[in-house]
Design a protein around this nucleic acid. Structure first.
Lengths: 194, 194
DNA sequence: ATTTACCTACCTACTAGTAGGAAGAAGACA
DNA sequence: TGTCTTCTTCCTACTAGTAGGTAGGTAAAT
């Protein structure tokens, strides 16, 4: 029987945290090797090439995200609270330094020199996140709980950019609270206060 | 007499474009060497270490930015137009691919593994950009040309995050127009329409 | 005479990736 | 049940190429 976290999963976990810290070119097989006490060659056994490793990693990240966002839509009552829960998720990730940056946001900044397979998956993540946000916003607008100035798709893009920019500012200033200070008003703006 | 663009300047120009494309770990002395037809060792003559090269580069970038923002404040009439001019500057940079990402935003994403001297300069850029935006917003609020929901400093942080997030989205989707679509409404929101 | 800007040639450390083998687990089968 | 075979996982040892950086020299400008 396999241990609850297989070696492949451990490799992906470490690689993910290294990418979040320094991007695609910011880590090596040797770094992973040192972190989990396994030889470099053994990592190549699980993931023959770096491009493949990151590709699988992003795939896993997208699945986790997709599942998380789906359960968020089902578990939380109102659209406004769904947005807030999404924001709070990232806030705690940044505060406890567990995942202080979105993997795909990190990789998107290096878009131009990413292996093509990875680049298209990163773009895919941006698409599905924008879709999720637009869907939440539209539902909110239909219910009258949210008031949109623009089309849901446009508002979704604005909100997504705000979240990514807030991550960057929080990192640049070394201040996790800055994330909330930036994103919260953007969400509040959308809540109808009549 | 030195040529209008000295070798050092050429090195910095190339290095800057390489950083914008792939970050600190995304370029090497060999890349610069190949791009301007000079030997690696000659680059070390101008910039002994990579950390020093990037440090000088960021310093130059900050000076250029500071000068640009200053002349923007002096040359453009109203605060709202100053914000729009700032946005348009980045829009054309992204569209013609001359500087399709802020150097400091790029480096900020790698903050954790940057040489300390570089990291503090990047943070310095974020500070001074936030200060400039806050100052423009405050002037606008005092003149009554802008209507702020929050303190100028908070609104400045929100606007800055929006700009950086919009750069990222434009890159991720490969669509320069997305930048404007995200930032323009954020500026429009601040314009008093009574 | 010294400095500047460049060169060739080199160094050590690290990069992703490969070859081939050892040890054990998992089935298949008598 | 034992044992033969195969697959998985990991290893040592290696490759070619690249990373940042250095030593020491040449030629021209100051």
């Amino acid at each position: 029987m396999k241990s609850i976290t297989s070696t492949s999963e451990k490799i992906l976990d470490i690689a993910q945290s290294l990418i979040v810290a320094g991007g695609y070119n910011g880590f090596s097989y040797a770094d992973i090797s040192a972190a989990i006490g396994i030889r470099k060659a053994s990592i190549h056994h699980h993931f023959p090439t770096k491009a493949e490793l990151v590709s699988v990693l992003v795939d896993r990240y997208r699945q986790q995200t997709e599942a998380g966002l789906k359960s968020l839509r089902e578990g939380v009552s109102s659209p406004a609270e769904q947005l807030q829960a999404y924001m709070n998720y990232w806030h705690s990730c940044i505060r406890d330094a567990s995942l202080p940056f979105c993997v795909c946001a990190m990789l998107a900044s290096e878009m131009q020199m990413l292996p093509e397979e990875v680049a298209s998956q990163v773009q895919g993540h941006f698409h599905s996140l924008a879709r999720w946000l637009a869907s939440v916003l539209q539902t909110g607008a239909e219910n009258g709980h949210l008031r949109l100035d623009k089309q849901p798709e446009e508002e979704a893009q604005m909100l997504m950019a705000s979240v990514h920019g807030a991550m960057l500012s929080a990192r640049a200033f070394g201040d996790p609270e800055l994330f909330i200070a930036i994103v919260a008003p953007q969400i509040a703006r959308l809540q109808a206060q009549d």
